[in-house]
Design a protein around this nucleic acid. Structure first.
Lengths: 212, 212
DNA sequence: CCATAAAACTAACAATTGTTAGTTTTATAA
DNA sequence: TTATAAAACTAACAATTGTTAGTTTTATGG
């Protein structure tokens, strides 16, 4: 540790790995900009937020943003694609795991809660502004979204066949569960210090066992 | 009937009520514009849709729109306020009715499905673009939304006390149910010819009794 | 203190925005 | 046919948009 951390500076520290000396920032200015953008996008949507709005939130001028980012579009795609990949990775692990279908649904609920607690601002863009992604990223996102829903649907169908899930319209089950999980980002920040473990338990109960 | 409909024209008909002769349109050009706008707003959001986009969808030039509407803002507020008032009226009737809490929840689910079937495009604006309403309409909308949620919450709390609803976190019940109902507009148009009565029955079952 | 790089700045651009003014076309009733 | 009103048009405006070029300031390590 003592020869790992070579020297601290204001925004980061130097670090030698083998023969290389590299500079590592605590959090890059770029990431700060992206985080600030996510908050603004959540409030007004991507299209209504101007680069001047974002600059003002950062306490700098609009042109200065371009020392750190390539374009407004890059900010949006970073926010959305990072999150979508997080969901994809999580879902793939759950789908491949050797547990029954109801347990898989519980893991999915847990995944959504974890991601929401970590980045509820970014989820607003993922839910509402994905259509403003450009060509390649739009297609990539849409594929991830499609695959995610298909994995979810397969789990429900298997659960129905196995008798773990009550017979009902598959699409209604998929839609009603997913819509609640996807909207968590709107609701969670309004709750003061709710414990993640309790939230998971209650959400699982309400979504799976109902309320009456 | 025969002396009620006086004369037909291309876009409407003349009609005498008592001593007055009035001209009634089948559907006003204004309403056509608002309907077209709702579709575009659903696809890209209010801020990303330009008056030239809307004009092109109507097959006319942007300036021509202003023969029928006052402003872009008027279109948005008409879409949202009309729908919000519809929900408010429906909820007030349900809250005041002499039925038990679970029956009230069933009526609320039915209300959301009815409104969604009638105007799923407009609901996109209500859900995603309400923050772009201006001063007075924004306050009016926010009050209606607050009151609606408060009515919903009261019904759930009463249901819990009466033992009609299983003990659980009130906020989670309110949030998870409402988020599904509010997102119906995204899901319903993708389903081909699903019967409203069956949809209501299944939604009530999934939301109230759960899936396992 | 000095050299360098990171990060801010000013000024401006070309395109697009909602909207207005004034004019022409189209539809209607007599 | 003719007068009128509805609804389209062209042309333009002032403001705002994302972004670039070029310059100055600030922070850093030696």
């Amino acid at each position: 540790m003592s020869d790992f951390y070579q020297k601290k500076t204001t925004n980061g520290y130097y670090c030698n790995i083998y023969q290389y000396l590299i500079y590592m920032k605590v959090e890059s200015r770029k990431q700060e900009i992206i985080n600030a953008a996510a908050i603004l996008f959540k409030e007004k949507g991507y299209s209504a937020v101007t680069m001047r709005d974002l600059a003002k939130a950062m306490g700098i001028k609009a042109a200065s943003l371009y020392n750190h980012i390539q374009s407004k579009q890059e900010i949006l795609s970073t926010i959305i694609i990072d999150l979508a990949e997080e969901f994809t990775t999580g879902m793939n692990a759950i789908a491949a795991s050797d547990i029954n279908c109801v347990e898989k649904l519980e893991k999915i609920i847990s995944l959504h809660i974890d991601v929401t607690l970590r980045n509820s601002d970014g989820l607003a863009s993922l839910n509402n502004d994905w259509m403003h992604l450009e060509e390649e990223n739009l297609l990539y996102f849409e594929k991830m979204r499609r695959d995610y829903e298909e994995n979810f649907r397969k789990i429900v169908i298997k659960g129905l066949k196995a008798g773990e899930i009550k017979s009902s319209n598959v699409e209604i089950i998929v839609f009603s569960t997913l819509s609640t999980l996807r909207t968590l980002y709107l609701w969670y920040p309004k709750q003061q210090n709710i414990d993640a473990a309790i939230l998971k338990k209650d959400m699982i109960s309400v979504l799976l066992k109902g309320i009456i």
